[in-house]
Amino acid sequence: MLQTADGAYSQINDILVQMKSLATEAASGQESSSNLSSLNGEFADLQSEIDQIGGSTQYGSINLIDGNTTATGGITFQIGATNGAGNYMVVQFNGATTVCLGVSGTSQKISIDSPASAQAAMTALDSALTSVNAHMGTVGGLQNQLQYSINNITQSIQNYTSSESTIEDVDMATEVSTLTKNQILQQSAMAMLAQANAQPQNVVKLLQTV
């Protein structure tokens, strides 16, 4: 899930860089009206691409970066063996649609159809790039936190397995010791019985010699 969101943020970051390049070109004041119209059309296509990625990035049936995970309180990961504090992690993915990033062509009227609008777009795009980079950093931190939790759980399982094996080994040693003890007692009893049976025969032999 985290990798999916991170990949989407990365794609959007690349698109914003392309949009910034177009806006910079349009803001120069050297482009004709037809060229500005062409640049603005390409710019609008990139805005649509951001919205497509932002609205369709999912994990299972959960939309990740359309802004809804923050509004609904996030997604909970169980990272421990119990339900106590510290055994779960709540993840909130920041929205990365054009509206969420402040570069929408409809809500925020961001376009590059003139040098003035292109200059305004450059400012908005700088802010959007800062936001997306921050979102990527947040996801990276969550990935590290989750990996630490996985490592900790794995170590706990290994320790439990080792302890269980030790207990089983101790029980086996006890059983072997008990079996050996019983065998010795049984052999001793048989030897004593054989000796007791032999005593009357020895008395008879002694009388016969008298």
Rank of each mutant, 00 (worst) to 15 (best):
Q147K: 04
N83S: 03
I153R: 14
T72D: 08
G137I: 03
T76P: 05
G74C: 09
G84A: 07
M89I: 00
H135V: 03
C100A: 15
G86I: 04
D126M: 08
V90R: 01
S127A: 13
L142A: 14
V139W: 07
N133E: 11
T72P: 01
T98K: 02
S156P: 11
V139S: 15
F93K: 09
V139A: 13
A121K: 07
T76F: 08
A71W: 05
T70C: 09
A81L: 14
V99E: 04
I79L: 01
C100K: 13
Y148L: 13
S127L: 05
G137Q: 12
L101F: 13
T138A: 12
Q143L: 12
Q143S: 15
A96I: 04
M89Y: 07
T82P: 06
Y88C: 10
V103L: 01
I157Q: 05
S131Y: 06
N133W: 10
T69Q: 04
N144C: 09
I79M: 01
K109S: 03
Y88M: 13
A118V: 04
Q158P: 10
Q92C: 09
L101W: 14
Q145K: 10
S127C: 08
T154Y: 03
A96S: 14
D113H: 04
N152T: 11
A96Y: 10
Q145D: 14
Q145M: 11
L125H: 01
A118Q: 02
D113I: 08
G137N: 15
T82S: 15
I150P: 02
Q155G: 02
S114N: 01
G141W: 00
N151H: 08
D126S: 13
A116V: 00
K109G: 05
A71L: 00
Q78W: 02
Y148I: 09
I110H: 05
S111G: 11
L125N: 00
T138P: 01
A134Y: 11
L142D: 12
Q119Y: 08
Q158Y: 03
T82V: 13
Q108G: 06
Q143E: 15
M89K: 11
I79E: 01
V99C: 04
Q155I: 03
L142M: 10
S156V: 04
I157T: 00
C100F: 06
G137W: 14
M122A: 08
T76C: 12
Q119V: 03
Q119H: 12
S114P: 01
Q155R: 05
N133M: 11
Q78G: 08
G140C: 07
A128E: 10
T106E: 08
Q108T: 03
I112M: 01
T106L: 05
A120V: 04
N94Q: 11
M89Q: 09
T106S: 12
L101D: 12
